[in-house]
């Protein structure tokens, strides 16, 4: 799949932002006043910034409001509802903390649940794609949610929780990669089922429909990054989990170490999210003899 920068930025940054909102919602850290204002500003910049980035990949952003209509069937529509609901509820809860020094905890808990629900709906947009076997697995939501919760803990300054959750997210990431590598082969879709010519013999793409490229090849048959995939995976897992863990364990330079840990984690998540798209094989590639 084509790794569109807008979608990678959106899912990574908003994942971190909604993760932070979830922690703030359950009162960890229990901040009020100006400190709460800073935390909420950061969370909203990440979450809303991500949402705005995702608008750039639409052909007609001016019609984006129509995306709220089909929540009965479409995960993208459900994501739109969940994100707006989470942002509104958390705004009310944040206003209580910042301006009234009051923690309206039911609002916070509901907001936290809605924030995680938003991340779940984002991941379900990919998980539902039977056409991309690598994504069509429960490991996709596990991957998105574990990264969001761990990154949120890191941003929220919950050091102990962050260390456990970062390690867990790293393990989930490795399992996600491992199962994803066998997904296409075990999906049962190959050139024989695509063409139904397998009964006659082995099928080879002889000539594509056009000498030039097309939308399908550009969008679904992205093979550029696969050469370096193994190296990028190591870089991603080091930056995402290993380096932040080491930094959190270091006894000195606590604030600087935490900031570096956040930056390293974000860079690792972005790398992993780039691979999530670049490595994903869409079955339409089989019609072109590619994967």
């Amino acid at each position: 799949m084509h790794p569109a920068p807008s979608v990678i930025l959106f899912s990574s940054l908003s994942g971190l932002g909604f993760g932070l909102l979830a922690w703030l919602g359950i009162g960890l850290p229990a901040v009020t006043g100006w400190v709460a204002f800073v935390f909420f500003t950061l969370a909203y910049l990440l979450a809303v910034g991500g949402l705005i980035a995702s608008m750039f990949h639409l052909g007609h952003p001016e019609r984006a409001l129509k995306a709220f209509t089909q929540w009965r069937s479409s995960w993208l529509s459900r994501e739109a509802w969940a994100s707006v609901a989470a942002l509104l509820v958390m705004a009310a809860y944040g206003a209580g903390l910042v301006f009234f020094d009051a923690r309206w905890w039911p609002l916070g808990v509901i907001g936290a649940a809605l924030s995680l629900l938003t991340v779940l709906t984002t991941s379900m947009i990919y998980t539902q794609m039977k056409t991309v076997p690598r994504w069509h697995s429960l490991w996709t939501p596990a991957n998105f949610l574990s990264l969001s919760i761990a990154g949120g803990a890191l941003l929220a300054g919950q050091v102990t929780e962050a260390m456990v959750l970062l390690a867990l997210a790293g393990v989930v990431q490795i399992v996600t990669w491992w199962q994803g590598d066998q997904a296409l082969a075990s999906s049962g879709t190959d050139m024989a089922t695509a063409t139904r010519l397998g009964d006659i013999g082995s099928v080879r793409a002889f000539e594509p429909p056009h000498t030039g490229s097309n939308y399908l090849l550009r969008e679904f048959v992205y093979v550029l990054g696969r050469k370096h995939a193994a190296k990028l995976r190591i870089i991603a897992i080091l930056l995402m989990a290993f380096v932040p863990l080491l930094l959190l364990l270091s006894p000195v330079l606590h604030h600087l170490a935490a900031a570096l840990a956040v930056l390293s984690h974000a860079a690792g998540v972005l790398t992993a999210r780039w691979l999530f798209f670049a490595q994903a094989e869409h079955v339409v590639g089989l019609y072109y003899g590619k994967r």
Partner: peptide, 26 residues
Amino acid sequence: DCIGCGLCAWACPYGAREMDVAEGVM
């Protein structure tokens, strides 16, 4: 009504849908 998000083309295993680059609709 199409916002050109491209999700329907992702969901189609046959490559039957193509986003028009000039119009931004499917």
